[in-house]
Structures are given as structure tokens and as C-alpha cells.
Write a protein that binds this DNA or RNA. Structure first.
Length: 107
DNA sequence: GTATTGACCGTAG
DNA sequence: TCTACGGCCAATA
């Protein structure tokens, strides 16, 4: 479980995110104990779109849909989250604290 | 091989 | 409360 690439690990975490829940890059980075290389998480996420990974549940610490432009359609991310019960407004998640999920909780 | 950028985060002013 | 700067690791030019 250590020969897997950084991207693979990120995918594993994102797949564990329950519906109607969102997390931040920093939380994933912290879980992976990669230090504060949250940028690497985002970089890995970009590749995750090509995979079967629900990257639409991953936002930045501000709850903003930063990578919505990376999806097939700009509305895919917000629409998907909204469909799962997450309130999205102005490309940001409302009540982020309520919908926020941390990988540590899955442990 | 060096420089710049990237779906970011945390602290300081 | 808001803005500015540095740090982190890897990829691309």
C-alpha cells in the first residue's frame, strides 16, 4: 500500500467521501501526511477527473469550487453537489461546516 | 539543468 | 476583517 503513486492515494481518499459531504485539499494532504503539499493534491485531482473519482466533492479550504472549470462542464461540479443535497451558491458551498467531511473521520 | 506554474494552506501586517 | 507573502512537491517549458 505504499508502492502506489501519490495520485492513487488521493483517489482512494476521494472515493471514501460520502454523498452530500465535501472536504478540502489540505485535509487530504494532511491525511496522507505529505506535509502541507496541498498543491500536489490538486495536481493529482486534475488527473482524477479522467478516473472514476468523484472529484466534485473536493473543494479548497474556503469551500469554493476552484476546479469546476476542469470538469467537462462548468456546471457539472455545482450541479452534482447540489443534487447530493449540498447547497451551492456563487460557486461556493453554503453551510460548509455542516457538509464538511474529514478523512480522519473515516479511520 | 534552471525557471515558472499549479483545482492550495497558513501566518503575518 | 482583508490583503500580501512564503512554503510545499511535481510537472512542464
Amino acid at each position: 500500500m505504499k508502492n502506489q503513486d501519490f495520485i492513487e492515494r488521493v483517489h482512494e481518499i476521494v472515493k471514501l467521501i460520502p454523498e452530500g459531504r465535501v472536504t478540502s485539499y489540505g485535509a487530504i494532504a494532511k491525511y496522507l501526511a505529505t506535509g502541507m503539499s496541498s498543491r500536489m493534491v490538486g495536481w493529482a485531482m486534475k488527473h482524477s477527473i479522467l478516473s472514476d473519482v468523484p472529484a466534485h466533492r473536493v473543494l479548497n479550504r474556503n469551500g469554493q469550487l476552484t476546479g469546476k472549470l476542469a470538469f467537462p462542464t462548468p456546471t457539472y461540479m455545482a450541479d452534482k453537489l447540489r443534487a447530493e443535497g449540498v447547497e451551492v451558491e456563487n460557486d461556493k458551498v453554503k453551510n460548509l461546516k455542516s457538509h464538511y467531511w474529514d478523512p480522519s473521520l473515516d479511520l
